[in-house]
Amino acid sequence: MMPHVAHDSRTYRRRSALAAALLALLAIGAGPDRPQAVWAVKDREARQPQVTIAADGRVYLAFGSGNEIRVASSDDGARSFSDPVPVGTLGMLALGMRRGPRIAAGQGAVVVSAIGGAGGGPYGGLSAGDLWSWRSTDGGTTWSEPIRLNQIESSAREGLHAMAGGPQGQIACVWIDLRNNRAHIRGVLSTDGGATWGPEILIHQSPEGPICPCCHPSVAFGPDGSLYVMWRDAISGARDMYLCRSLDGGKTFEPSQKLGLGTWPLEVCPMDGGAIAAGPERQVTTVWMRDGRLYSADPGQPERLLGPGVQGWASWGPSGPFLTWLDRRPGRLLELRPGDTEPIELFRSANDPSVASSINGQGPVVAAWEAGPGGSGIFVARLDEPGDHDAE
């Protein structure tokens, strides 16, 4: 159960009035087709929210505030959240442009990862940076000491990584590695819910030089344990998305394949990496941006234009893949549900959205995002049960 927090009645009324006013200004009201936003974290410094859903249905929300990593949780299906709990602090916590903490659940544990270092680099990267993980076995109340995941010191200084939980409690973490000043994808795996981690794995190195260095990688497990990794490469002057798959739990990976039929000649990094939704029977859908337009593509199939947009995210829910994106950064937050042909608007001004569901595709599908511009905290919404509850 979430801890009870006592509030002065006047403070409670003021907060409730402020929440109602903000939602009236920014959110689309609940209705038969539109989920209602919940103001989950009332911290103007809260950034880069990420969500995971444990096997028992509990929802965990990770984010950064200053140099501190924090986690809030919900035991009522993301209708309300506990006060955030501090996980750890890193010097120069990497935040912004999809940098920030990641969270996954497995084997009764919750695992958080984040990158921190020293000095500001280009686009929010670091002059030095390492990838760390923390673990909780009591529902996010207390957290372990951090474990460094990259073996070569400061090789994760670009500040971009991804993490996912698997059906047997596996945890996979991948990042853009800059050892030898050549951006490529490395990863580590845990088979015990983040208590220990295996050795580094070289997942992909571009044949011509560095991959696109400022677009975050993505990782997802399928319900059968298959593992998928996606990144933006830089080959022959084009910045296209590529996907690879492992069928042996991440020990080996099949050759990578380009996603979609089109290509994007571009000399600079667009800073937008997309996401993977992995479903049953090895079904996979990806969402990503090309030249200011958002596309969805299954491996080996032509891409499908969703519309103008950036910062796509995807997760496989009970009825298929749920997709979210912004029409601009910051901008309107849009959602496309399984079987729909047109998106609906979730929020009028948002940034850095993400969406998550449980690994077995059952239970809630939850989106989280920053309010923008200027920020007023983090909002969440249930995407699988639209219009069935009110924000508090």
Rank of each mutant, 00 (worst) to 15 (best):
G116W: 02
Q301W: 08
A277I: 02
S256I: 01
W288F: 15
Y228F: 15
G106W: 01
Y242F: 15
T52M: 07
G194K: 04
V71A: 13
E153Y: 06
P199R: 04
V355C: 12
G209Q: 02
V85N: 02
A19M: 10
W316G: 09
W288P: 01
P210D: 08
A156G: 09
I53K: 09
Q50N: 13
R329G: 01
R44W: 00
S136H: 02
H184S: 04
S376F: 13
E200R: 00
S65H: 07
A30W: 00
G292D: 09
A164Y: 07
A238E: 13
I378P: 07
C173M: 11
L336M: 10
D298L: 07
P86Q: 05
A55R: 15
R382L: 07
C215V: 06
T286A: 05
M2A: 10
D291H: 12
E200G: 13
A27T: 00
P299Y: 04
R337T: 03
S226D: 14
R148K: 14
D291C: 08
S354R: 11
A105T: 04
A275D: 15
A109E: 03
M2P: 03
D138V: 10
F63H: 14
W325E: 06
T142I: 10
G374Y: 12
L326C: 09
P386E: 04
P321H: 01
T341R: 14
E342S: 15
V188M: 06
L90R: 11
D352V: 03
W313K: 11
V284L: 12
G377C: 08
F81I: 00
L202I: 06
G331C: 02
R135W: 05
V87E: 04
R79I: 05
N150E: 05
G377I: 09
A30V: 04
F253D: 07
P217I: 01
G375T: 07
D233G: 06
G108E: 02
V287P: 09
A381D: 01
L149I: 01
S144A: 11
R293V: 12
L383N: 09
V268H: 14
V71L: 10
G375H: 08
A156Q: 11
I53R: 12
E303N: 11
